[in-house]
Amino acid sequence: MKKATSVDLDKIITDFIQLEHKIIEMKGGNTKLEIQLDETSRLLKLAQNKEKQLIEEKDGLLETVKVLQQTVQQQCDLRVENQKLKSAALQMKKENEVKLEENKAHVQRLEAEMRALKNQHQRELADFAKETQRRLEAKDAEMKVALEKNRCALEQMRTQIREKETEKQSQIIKLQMEFGAKLARAQSMTVKNQTHTQASSPLPQNIFKRKLQFIQEEKNKEIEALRQRVRELEQQSLHGVIGSHQKRRKN
C-alpha cells in the first residue's frame, strides 16, 4: 500500500516566493557588484595610468636629482679647485713679491756697478786722451825733427846738385877750351901736312866729342838721381805731415 504523504503547499509557496525574492535580490546585488566591478576596473585603470605617470615623473625627478647631484658635486669640486688656485695664486704672489724685491736689489747693485764702470771708463778715457796727446806731441816732435832732417838733406842735395852742375859746367868749359886749343894747333899746322891733318884731325875731334858727351850724360844721370831723391824726400815729408794731421782729427 502506498504511504500517504501530506504536502504543505502554503509553506512551499511561501518558501518559493522567498527564494524568488532572494534570487531577485541576488541578481540586483550582482548587478551592483558588476557596476562596482566596472567602476573599480575603471578606477584601477586610472590608478595604473596615474601610477605609470607618477613612475615616469619619479624617473624624471630621479634623473634631475642625479644631474643636480652631479652639478652640486662639480660645484664642490670647482670650489675646492678654486680654493687651491687661490692658495697657489697667493703663494705665487708672495714669491713674486720676494723675487721683485730681489730683482730691485739686483738692479740697484747693477746700477751701482754701472756707475762705477762708467766712472772708471771716464777715467780711462781721460788717461787715454792724455796718453794720446802725449804721444801726438812726441810724434809731432819726431816729425819736426824728421822734417828738419829732411829739410837739411834736401838743402844738402840741392847744394850737391848745384855743385855738380857747377862742376859739370866747369868740366865742359875746360873740355871746350882743350878742344879749341887742340883744334887751333891742328889748324895751324903747315900746308904740307894739311892733307894728312885733314885725314887724321877728325879722329881727335870725334874723341873729344864723345868724351864730352859721355861726361855730360854721366853728370845728367847723377843730377837726375839727386833730383829724384829730393822728390822722394819731399813726398815722404808731405805724407808724414798729412798723416799727423789726420791722426789729430781722428783723436
Rank of each mutant, 00 (worst) to 15 (best):
residue 34 E to D: 07
residue 163 E to G: 02
residue 242 I to P: 01
residue 53 Q to K: 07
residue 134 R to W: 05
residue 180 G to I: 11
residue 232 E to F: 07
residue 114 M to Y: 02
residue 147 L to K: 04
residue 83 Q to N: 11
residue 50 K to E: 01
residue 84 K to S: 10
residue 132 T to D: 00
residue 96 N to Y: 03
residue 209 K to R: 14
residue 104 K to S: 15
residue 45 K to S: 08
residue 104 K to P: 03
residue 183 L to I: 13
residue 40 T to K: 12
residue 79 R to A: 13
residue 4 A to W: 10
residue 224 E to S: 14
residue 151 R to W: 10
residue 85 L to K: 10
residue 174 K to T: 06
residue 166 T to I: 14
residue 192 K to A: 12
residue 181 A to G: 02
residue 129 A to I: 04
residue 115 R to V: 00
residue 226 L to N: 01
residue 249 R to A: 08
residue 17 I to S: 08
residue 104 K to R: 15
residue 59 D to N: 09
residue 183 L to A: 12
residue 82 N to W: 00
residue 26 M to T: 09
residue 53 Q to S: 12
residue 51 E to S: 12
residue 122 Q to A: 14
residue 183 L to W: 12
residue 240 G to I: 05
residue 69 Q to E: 11
residue 149 K to I: 03
residue 208 F to V: 01
residue 95 E to V: 06
residue 39 E to P: 02
residue 28 G to D: 07
residue 204 P to C: 05
residue 123 R to A: 09
residue 222 E to V: 06
residue 113 E to Y: 01
residue 78 L to P: 03
residue 180 G to H: 12
residue 108 Q to W: 01
residue 247 K to R: 15
residue 178 E to P: 00
residue 164 K to H: 05
residue 212 L to K: 08
residue 16 F to W: 01
residue 70 Q to Y: 11
residue 35 I to F: 08
residue 83 Q to M: 11
residue 30 N to M: 13
residue 29 G to N: 10
residue 51 E to L: 14
residue 71 T to Q: 03
residue 194 Q to T: 08
